[in-house]
Design a protein around this nucleic acid. Sequence first.
DNA 1: ACCTGAACACCGTTCAAGT
DNA 2: ACCTGAACACCGTTCAAGT
Lengths: 241, 241
Amino acid sequence: MAAEQKPPGDARAKRAVGRPRRLDPETIVATARRIIEEEGVAALSMRRVAREVGVTPMALYHHVRDKDELLMLTLSGTAATFPRPELPADPRERLIDVSVHMHQVLEQLPWVLEILALGDLTDKGALWMVEEILASSIACGLSPEQAVRAYRTIWHFVYGNLVFTAAMARRAAEPERQWNFPTMLTDEDAAQLPRLTELASRWDKVGEYDIREQLAAIIDGLLSRAERPQPGGGSTSQPVD
Amino acid sequence: MAAEQKPPGDARAKRAVGRPRRLDPETIVATARRIIEEEGVAALSMRRVAREVGVTPMALYHHVRDKDELLMLTLSGTAATFPRPELPADPRERLIDVSVHMHQVLEQLPWVLEILALGDLTDKGALWMVEEILASSIACGLSPEQAVRAYRTIWHFVYGNLVFTAAMARRAAEPERQWNFPTMLTDEDAAQLPRLTELASRWDKVGEYDIREQLAAIIDGLLSRAERPQPGGGSTSQPVD
DNA sequence: ACCTGAACACCGTTCAAGT
DNA sequence: ACCTGAACACCGTTCAAGT
């Protein structure tokens, strides 16, 4: 019973020296995050984490409720690793810049996307972006309610865009599975779908776009609904056409 | 050994009578789709399909290359089950209506979302929506290149919106895992995030929105970029507020 | 309180063999 | 050509037991 001092060998994960507890939540999530970053969410399993930490699979369940909770925990702290950019004073420009920044950050963290789809925002370090979008939207003349909806709309677009950009990259890497619609359009289809047929050959090139331009268009559309339009706020005040 | 006439019992899946082949691709994908529709994509496994069809797991691999291919195959034909709506003549209204329709259809097919994220559009019956979005965008004055980008933007938003709407519904069903940001915002956070703090309590109610309104705003933003603006094309010509 | 061992009920896929 | 059987290398999680 005096041998509760824990022999140092056996477990091949190097942990901090002199730690009384054999296993703490921090090392669990750190190990999980490393696996995900290196090999993707699909490579994460409770058994794998347990093996790498040097512990029985069931030991993890004393610190996390289940695999989903472990996944959410791996998110916290990631936003802080990206420096907060300087933002312009004009609220519309600010809105565009934050949205683009959100997109850029997540572009470099592709593994985060799959976990975010679980539905919760668990990294407090990312909330300044939400705040900024709300504040700038309101500064552009949107009501608080409109601002919340605008945030959601921007976020949904950014998320969807990243999912399909990633999917296209994956597909390009595996060219043997190329059965999207450029392939196999019968003559009858072509007659029914003239514009699509016309654009099919150069679809992939034409579809590539500047995310900033699209976000600016979306934001201008959202700001055009302002009940109290501001000087620099709406696109309609700009001589667009 | 003369009993190679195959006794009728055993396999509990009722197949068409007098079929010479024991197993054809159609029954495989039909069974797969049934499982997905009833229990979700997570419930689908090669072994499960094999069991229900009354065949060895490996028999499936003679007809589909792998699980992903089977998943894509389950998509084809789903769009045709939804009647094609009548659309207004005005191109901007058309654009909004098709986009809303796309959203509505997928809202009733939640299992399709996860498969679409694999990246390919495998149901030819859905292409008329793409065609309609392209044609209407061009009719509103967008160039073909702009139209393709507009389609992508609309689609990405619709997709993202559906993912998070589904996630919110799932979360609402499991109220014990409620640790989104209304919970746990320290006083320091509140000072840094005034707008968010202000709105946190009524976040979920305020965030609910009419998808048509948001799509209209996005579309107006996209159409405001028309190089050749059309009479009914832009939001700016409409007295929005 | 924290961890182990054994078990339950599963996975996708390869490979060699049967008819 | 089409299917089976056995195997490989895995899963998440429950439950009873150990210290």
